[in-house]
Protein backbone atom coordinates (compact mmCIF):
# COMPACT_ATOMS: atom_id res chain seq x y z
CA UNK A 1 0.00 0.00 0.00
CA UNK A 2 1.42 3.40 -0.98
CA UNK A 3 -0.88 5.82 0.80
CA UNK A 4 -3.36 4.91 3.52
CA UNK A 5 -5.76 7.47 4.98
CA UNK A 6 -7.90 6.54 7.98
CA UNK A 7 -10.75 8.59 9.41
CA UNK A 8 -9.40 11.96 8.35
CA UNK A 9 -11.29 14.91 9.84
CA UNK A 10 -10.74 18.64 9.36
CA UNK A 11 -13.04 21.45 10.42
CA UNK A 12 -12.68 25.19 9.90
CA UNK A 13 -14.71 26.92 12.58
CA UNK A 14 -18.17 25.41 12.30
CA UNK A 15 -17.63 23.99 8.83
CA UNK A 16 -16.45 20.40 8.57
CA UNK A 17 -14.48 20.41 5.34
CA UNK A 18 -13.43 16.75 5.52
CA UNK A 19 -15.37 14.34 7.65
CA UNK A 20 -13.99 10.86 8.20
CA UNK A 21 -12.22 10.22 4.91
CA UNK A 22 -10.74 6.76 4.26
CA UNK A 23 -8.58 5.99 1.29
CA UNK A 24 -6.25 3.17 0.26
CA UNK A 25 -3.99 3.91 -2.63
CA UNK A 26 -2.01 0.93 -3.91
CA UNK A 27 1.60 1.23 -5.06
CA UNK A 28 0.76 1.58 -8.75
CA UNK A 29 -2.86 2.78 -8.58
CA UNK A 30 -4.41 5.73 -10.32
CA UNK A 31 -7.40 6.81 -8.28
CA UNK A 32 -9.68 9.81 -8.55
CA UNK A 33 -11.51 12.04 -6.12
CA UNK A 34 -14.47 13.88 -7.60
CA UNK A 35 -17.23 16.01 -6.16
CA UNK A 36 -18.94 19.37 -6.56
CA UNK A 37 -17.21 22.65 -5.72
CA UNK A 38 -16.60 23.03 -2.02
CA UNK A 39 -16.83 19.29 -1.42
CA UNK A 40 -13.48 19.32 0.38
CA UNK A 41 -11.28 17.85 -2.34
CA UNK A 42 -8.46 20.36 -2.21
CA UNK A 43 -8.60 20.30 1.59
CA UNK A 44 -7.81 16.59 1.37
CA UNK A 45 -4.66 17.40 -0.64
CA UNK A 46 -3.70 20.13 1.82
CA UNK A 47 -4.04 17.60 4.65
CA UNK A 48 -1.99 14.95 2.87
CA UNK A 49 0.83 17.43 2.11
CA UNK A 50 0.91 18.81 5.65
CA UNK A 51 -0.23 22.33 4.76
CA UNK A 52 -3.12 21.70 7.17
CA UNK A 53 -2.91 19.44 10.20
CA UNK A 54 -5.89 17.06 10.56
CA UNK A 55 -8.14 17.32 13.64
CA UNK A 56 -8.38 13.54 13.69
CA UNK A 57 -7.29 10.59 11.62
CA UNK A 58 -4.05 9.11 10.32
CA UNK A 59 -1.94 9.36 7.22
CA UNK A 60 0.61 6.74 6.32
CA UNK A 61 2.95 6.29 3.39
CA UNK A 62 3.92 2.62 3.25
CA UNK A 63 5.11 1.97 6.79
CA UNK A 64 5.88 5.59 7.54
CA UNK A 65 3.56 7.69 9.69
CA UNK A 66 2.98 11.08 8.06
CA UNK A 67 0.47 12.51 10.52
CA UNK A 68 1.88 15.64 12.12
CA UNK A 69 4.95 15.97 9.89
CA UNK A 70 5.91 19.34 8.39
CA UNK A 71 5.30 19.87 4.65
CA UNK A 72 8.98 19.61 3.72
CA UNK A 73 9.34 16.33 5.62
CA UNK A 74 6.25 14.93 3.89
CA UNK A 75 7.67 15.98 0.53
CA UNK A 76 10.96 14.23 1.32
CA UNK A 77 9.04 11.14 2.44
CA UNK A 78 7.71 10.88 -1.11
CA UNK A 79 4.54 12.88 -1.71
CA UNK A 80 4.45 15.51 -4.45
CA UNK A 81 1.60 17.60 -5.78
CA UNK A 82 0.48 20.06 -8.41
CA UNK A 83 -2.06 22.84 -7.96
CA UNK A 84 -5.31 23.68 -9.68
CA UNK A 85 -4.00 27.19 -10.29
CA UNK A 86 -0.46 26.34 -11.38
CA UNK A 87 2.14 27.43 -8.82
CA UNK A 88 5.55 27.60 -10.40
CA UNK A 89 8.48 29.77 -9.39
CA UNK A 90 7.29 32.10 -12.13
CA UNK A 91 10.20 34.55 -12.07
CA UNK A 92 12.80 31.80 -12.20
CA UNK A 93 14.02 29.80 -15.15
CA UNK A 94 12.55 26.45 -16.09
CA UNK A 95 15.86 24.84 -15.11
CA UNK A 96 15.88 26.52 -11.68
CA UNK A 97 12.35 25.22 -11.04
CA UNK A 98 13.56 21.67 -11.52
CA UNK A 99 16.78 22.24 -9.59
CA UNK A 100 14.71 23.40 -6.63
CA UNK A 101 12.75 20.16 -6.69
CA UNK A 102 15.91 18.07 -6.76
CA UNK A 103 17.34 20.28 -4.03
CA UNK A 104 15.31 18.67 -1.25
CA UNK A 105 17.03 15.37 -1.90
CA UNK A 106 20.54 16.82 -1.86
CA UNK A 107 22.40 15.97 1.32
CA UNK A 108 24.25 18.91 2.78
CA UNK A 109 23.91 21.23 5.74
CA UNK A 110 23.60 24.97 6.00
CA UNK A 111 27.21 25.42 7.01
CA UNK A 112 28.41 23.15 4.22
CA UNK A 113 26.54 25.41 1.83
CA UNK A 114 27.79 28.67 3.32
CA UNK A 115 31.38 27.42 3.45
CA UNK A 116 31.02 25.69 0.08
CA UNK A 117 32.61 22.38 1.03
CA UNK A 118 33.58 19.77 -1.53
CA UNK A 119 30.55 17.67 -0.73
CA UNK A 120 28.23 20.61 -1.34
CA UNK A 121 29.90 21.44 -4.64
CA UNK A 122 29.66 17.86 -5.87
CA UNK A 123 25.97 17.79 -5.03
CA UNK A 124 25.46 21.06 -6.85
CA UNK A 125 27.08 19.88 -10.07
CA UNK A 126 25.22 16.57 -9.98
CA UNK A 127 21.89 18.34 -9.57
CA UNK A 128 22.48 20.64 -12.54
CA UNK A 129 23.12 17.64 -14.76
CA UNK A 130 20.10 15.75 -13.41
CA UNK A 131 17.87 18.80 -13.94
CA UNK A 132 18.78 18.96 -17.63
CA UNK A 133 18.14 15.25 -18.15
CA UNK A 134 14.83 15.50 -16.38
CA UNK A 135 13.64 18.41 -18.53
CA UNK A 136 14.55 16.53 -21.66
CA UNK A 137 12.17 13.72 -20.66
CA UNK A 138 9.30 16.21 -20.65
CA UNK A 139 10.18 17.90 -23.92
CA UNK A 140 11.20 21.07 -22.11
CA UNK A 141 14.93 20.92 -22.85
CA UNK A 142 14.73 23.86 -25.26
CA UNK A 143 12.97 25.96 -22.66
CA UNK A 144 15.39 25.56 -19.77
CA UNK A 145 16.65 29.15 -19.76
CA UNK A 146 13.20 30.74 -20.17
CA UNK A 147 11.27 32.13 -17.23
CA UNK A 148 8.68 29.63 -16.06
CA UNK A 149 5.95 32.27 -15.97
CA UNK A 150 6.46 33.08 -19.64
CA UNK A 151 5.69 29.56 -20.93
CA UNK A 152 2.35 28.83 -22.60
CA UNK A 153 -0.26 27.38 -20.28
CA UNK A 154 0.06 23.78 -21.41
CA UNK A 155 3.82 23.82 -20.92
CA UNK A 156 3.47 25.41 -17.49
CA UNK A 157 1.25 22.51 -16.53
CA UNK A 158 3.80 20.06 -17.90
CA UNK A 159 6.62 21.82 -16.05
CA UNK A 160 4.64 21.70 -12.81
CA UNK A 161 4.20 17.94 -13.21
CA UNK A 162 7.88 17.54 -14.14
CA UNK A 163 8.87 19.54 -11.07
CA UNK A 164 6.68 17.41 -8.82
CA UNK A 165 8.29 14.26 -10.26
CA UNK A 166 11.77 15.67 -9.74
CA UNK A 167 11.24 15.40 -5.98
CA UNK A 168 11.21 11.60 -6.48
CA UNK A 169 7.71 10.90 -5.17
CA UNK A 170 6.04 7.58 -4.42
CA UNK A 171 2.66 9.31 -4.63
CA UNK A 172 1.77 12.09 -7.04
CA UNK A 173 -1.25 14.27 -6.22
CA UNK A 174 -2.75 16.10 -9.20
CA UNK A 175 -5.24 18.84 -8.33
CA UNK A 176 -7.51 19.41 -11.35
CA UNK A 177 -4.73 19.11 -13.91
CA UNK A 178 -7.20 19.61 -16.79
CA UNK A 179 -8.58 22.89 -15.41
CA UNK A 180 -8.68 25.55 -18.10
CA UNK A 181 -7.64 23.23 -20.92
CA UNK A 182 -9.32 22.78 -24.30
CA UNK A 183 -10.27 19.25 -25.48
CA UNK A 184 -7.04 18.82 -27.45
CA UNK A 185 -4.89 19.82 -24.47
CA UNK A 186 -6.93 17.49 -22.28
CA UNK A 187 -6.12 14.63 -24.63
CA UNK A 188 -2.40 15.44 -24.45
CA UNK A 189 -2.65 15.65 -20.68
CA UNK A 190 -4.19 12.18 -20.46
CA UNK A 191 -1.33 10.83 -22.56
CA UNK A 192 1.20 12.62 -20.34
CA UNK A 193 -0.29 11.20 -17.14
CA UNK A 194 -0.27 7.69 -18.68
CA UNK A 195 3.36 8.14 -19.66
CA UNK A 196 4.26 9.37 -16.17
CA UNK A 197 2.54 6.37 -14.64
CA UNK A 198 4.38 4.02 -16.98
CA UNK A 199 7.85 5.59 -16.57
CA UNK A 200 7.91 6.39 -12.86
CA UNK A 201 7.35 3.90 -10.03
CA UNK A 202 4.53 5.74 -8.33
CA UNK A 203 0.82 5.94 -7.55
CA UNK A 204 -1.37 8.83 -8.68
CA UNK A 205 -4.26 10.45 -6.87
CA UNK A 206 -6.26 12.81 -9.03
CA UNK A 207 -8.84 15.49 -8.27
CA UNK A 208 -10.76 16.35 -11.38
CA UNK A 209 -13.88 18.10 -12.58
CA UNK A 210 -13.69 16.88 -16.16
CA UNK A 211 -15.31 13.45 -16.18
CA UNK A 212 -13.60 12.25 -19.39
CA UNK A 213 -10.22 12.53 -17.66
CA UNK A 214 -11.38 10.54 -14.65
CA UNK A 215 -13.15 7.88 -16.70
CA UNK A 216 -10.13 7.55 -18.96
CA UNK A 217 -7.49 7.25 -16.24
CA UNK A 218 -8.93 5.97 -12.98
CA UNK A 219 -9.81 2.41 -12.10
CA UNK A 220 -11.31 3.54 -8.82
CA UNK A 221 -12.95 6.80 -7.80
CA UNK A 222 -14.35 8.28 -4.67
CA UNK A 223 -17.08 10.93 -4.63
CA UNK A 224 -17.03 13.61 -1.93
CA UNK A 225 -19.91 15.86 -0.99
CA UNK A 226 -19.77 18.22 2.00
CA UNK A 227 -16.61 16.46 3.15
CA UNK A 228 -18.16 13.00 3.16
CA UNK A 229 -17.68 10.06 0.87
CA UNK A 230 -21.04 9.37 -0.75
CA UNK A 231 -19.85 6.72 -3.19
CA UNK A 232 -16.73 4.81 -4.16
CA UNK A 233 -15.85 2.18 -6.75
CA UNK A 234 -15.31 1.78 -10.48
CA UNK A 235 -16.12 5.00 -12.38
CA UNK A 236 -18.83 3.39 -14.51
CA UNK A 237 -20.72 2.22 -11.41
CA UNK A 238 -20.22 5.37 -9.42
CA UNK A 239 -21.54 7.66 -12.11
CA UNK A 240 -24.80 5.66 -12.17
CA UNK A 241 -25.23 5.94 -8.40
CA UNK A 242 -28.39 8.05 -7.73
CA UNK A 243 -26.75 9.78 -4.75
CA UNK A 244 -23.90 10.94 -6.95
CA UNK A 245 -26.18 12.11 -9.71
CA UNK A 246 -28.18 14.12 -7.21
CA UNK A 247 -25.21 15.66 -5.42
CA UNK A 248 -22.98 16.38 -8.30
CA UNK A 249 -23.90 15.43 -11.79
CA UNK A 250 -27.47 16.62 -11.74
CA UNK A 251 -26.73 20.17 -10.77
CA UNK A 252 -24.35 21.32 -13.46
CA UNK A 253 -23.63 19.02 -16.32
CA UNK A 254 -24.22 15.40 -17.19
CA UNK A 255 -21.26 13.04 -17.23
CA UNK A 256 -19.72 12.41 -20.62
Amino acid sequence: MALRIEGLVKAFGGLTAVSGLNLDLGDRDIQGIIGPNGAGKTTVFNLITGIYQPDRGRLRLGEQELTGLAPDAIARAGIARTFQNIRLFAHMTVLDNITMALHGRAGYSLWEAVLRTGNYRRQETRLRVESRDHLARFGLADRQQELAGSLPYGEQRRLEIARALATGPKVLLLDEPAAGMNPKEVEELILLIRQVHRDFPLAILLIEHQMPVVLELCAHIQVLDFGQTIAAGAPQDVTRNPLVIEAYLGEAEAPA
Binding site: D72, A75, R76, R81, F89, A90, D96, M100, H103, T167
Partner: peptide, 20 residues
Amino acid sequence: LVGTAMRAVADNKDVVPLMG
Protein backbone atom coordinates in the same frame (compact mmCIF):
# COMPACT_ATOMS: atom_id res chain seq x y z
CA LEU B 1 21.71 25.81 -4.74
CA VAL B 2 21.24 27.91 -1.63
CA GLY B 3 20.91 30.98 -3.84
CA THR B 4 18.39 29.20 -6.04
CA ALA B 5 16.42 28.32 -2.93
CA MET B 6 16.60 31.92 -1.71
CA ARG B 7 15.22 33.15 -5.02
CA ALA B 8 12.53 30.48 -4.84
CA VAL B 9 11.48 31.67 -1.38
CA ALA B 10 11.29 35.22 -2.72
CA ASP B 11 9.26 34.01 -5.70
CA ASN B 12 6.74 31.71 -4.04
CA LYS B 13 7.47 30.97 -0.40
CA ASP B 14 4.56 28.58 0.13
CA VAL B 15 5.67 26.16 -2.56
CA VAL B 16 9.25 25.82 -1.32
CA PRO B 17 8.47 23.26 1.46
CA LEU B 18 6.64 21.11 -1.10
CA MET B 19 9.98 20.73 -2.87
CA GLY B 20 11.25 19.02 0.29
